[in-house]
Amino acid sequence: MTALDSLKVQVMKKAWAEPAFKSQLLAEPKKAIKEAFGDEIPEDVELRVVEESKYVFYLTLPPKPEDVADDRSNRNFVW
């Protein structure tokens, strides 16, 4: 699991266990994460939190790769 994945798991566990943290996370996600875990989400990122239930789920559509990815070439021979 990456460091990021384990942060996500910690956030979710804390939100499940502590209603006060969950409320803060839903209202001000970046602040809640910073105060609880010390991790800073970059300023240019806006974070929103949604809660699934037993019968309501979210399928999040990520941004298109062409909008967020940089391609890098492994080229090793040049002119």
């Binding site: 996500k8 990122v45 999040t60 990520p62 941004p63 790769p65 967020v68 492994n74």
Partner: peptide, 19 residues
């Protein structure tokens, strides 16, 4: 690598990718 980027984005979502 291009395909891995797409899969990472699709599975992990935008936040994981950006971070």
């Amino acid at each position: 690598e291009a395909e891995e980027t797409v899969v990472r984005l699709a599975l992990g979502g935008g936040l994981s990718y950006i971070l």
